[in-house]
Simulated assay, not measured.
Amino acid sequence: MIRVGISGWRYAGWRGVFYPTGLPQRRELEHAAGRLTTIEVNGSFYSLQRPSSWRAWAAEVPEDFLFAVKGPRYITHMKKLVDVEAPLGTFLASGVLSLGARLGPLLWQLPPNLGFHPDRLAAFFDLLPRRTSEASAFAAAHHDASKLKEPADTASPEDRPLRHVLEVRHQSFWTPEFCELLRAHDIGMVVADSAGTWPMFDEVTSDLAYVRLHGDQELYTSGYSEKALDHWAEKVRQWDAQGLDVLVYFDNDAKVHAPFDAIALQERLGIAPSGREHQAGSSGVEHRR
Rank of each mutant, 00 (worst) to 15 (best):
V190C: 04
M200Y: 08
Y249H: 13
F91S: 00
F91I: 02
L213P: 00
A139V: 01
A192W: 01
L219I: 05
G115Y: 12
L213M: 10
W239A: 09
G43A: 12
L36Y: 05
M200G: 04
V236G: 00
W14N: 00
P72V: 01
R276Q: 13
Y224M: 03
W9K: 00
S44A: 09
H31I: 06
P259V: 06
T154G: 06
V96L: 12
R10V: 13
V236L: 08
R289E: 12
V82T: 11
Y74C: 10
S44H: 10
L208F: 08
N113D: 15
E203D: 15
E226R: 15
A192M: 04
Y19S: 01
D240F: 11
F45K: 01
S7M: 06
G8A: 07
G22N: 09
W174D: 15
G89E: 02
A209F: 08
E267I: 02
S156W: 11
A195Q: 09
V82Y: 12
F250K: 05
D153I: 03
A56F: 13
R212Q: 04
W198N: 02
A135M: 07
S225W: 12
E180P: 05
Q25D: 14
A264H: 10
T175I: 08
L29S: 05
A93R: 02
I6H: 05
G5D: 00
V17P: 09
R131F: 11
Y249M: 03
V69A: 04
A12N: 13
F45C: 01
A32C: 10
S47W: 15
K149F: 14
G16E: 06
R35W: 13
G104I: 05
F260M: 04
L265A: 05
I187A: 00
N42A: 05
L107Q: 00
A145E: 13
A258L: 07
T197A: 14
A58G: 15
Q279S: 13
E158Y: 07
I2Q: 03
G13K: 07
E177F: 14
P259I: 06
H117V: 11
Y11T: 00
A258R: 02
S52V: 09
G89P: 06
P129E: 02
G270H: 11
H257I: 02
E218P: 11
K147I: 08
T90E: 03
L213N: 01
P51M: 00
D230K: 10
L208D: 01
A233L: 08
H142K: 14
A93W: 09
E134Y: 12
A141I: 06
V204M: 09
R237T: 02
V248F: 09
D202V: 07
L208Q: 00
Y11W: 09
A241V: 04
A86C: 14
P24T: 02
R27D: 15
L247T: 03
Y19F: 14
S136K: 03
M200L: 15
A258S: 09
V236Q: 02
H77K: 06
S156V: 10
S283Y: 14
V248A: 02
L48H: 08
D251P: 03
R268H: 11
Q217N: 13
L181N: 01
T175R: 11
E30Y: 11
W232K: 03
E134L: 11
E267P: 06
L208I: 10
A59I: 12
E30A: 15
A56V: 10
R26Q: 15
L128W: 07
P176Y: 03
D144C: 11
L48F: 13
P259C: 08
Y220C: 01
